[in-house]
Amino acid sequence: MKLNPMELYNLLPKTNCRLCEPKTCMAFATKLALGDVLPDDCPPLLESGFEKNLEKIRELVAPLQSTETTGIKLDEDKCTGCGNCVVVCPVDVAAEPPTSEGKAALSEDTVFRVENGISKIINLEKCRRFPPDRLNCRVCEQYCCTDAIEIW
């Protein structure tokens, strides 16, 4: 389930103190929802008076910290088989180098492969979000123009 930045924002101190890297509380909430920052990166949140808020935020973002629980959902009804996910996935490029030049994935070694007109995830465990890499990579979701791909 995707985190709602507004829900996180409402739990933050909302001081816009600019002590964090994103600089504003709304920007911090957005990055928190993406897993790009941690609750402990907000100094005012660690001060007394915000204990309950901090606990709630930690509970909400906990799934993002453990990439074993990550998943990629592909809505086949929305997918047009454009191949954006195949070409942009760094794992695909390493497993089948011609995909980096826009060619179709034809082997069984890639994460994504377009079969019968629709993109399929054929090797989810090879995704960089999983161990050993545990990276917060979201390029397939970012470049899916029809919003068929959702990462959680």
Partner: peptide, 13 residues
């Protein structure tokens, strides 16, 4: 039955 690899949705249809 038709199967394809690499064709987009329009092409497969």
């Amino acid at each position: 039955e038709v199967k394809s690899l690499g064709l987009c949705r329009l092409g497969h249809t």
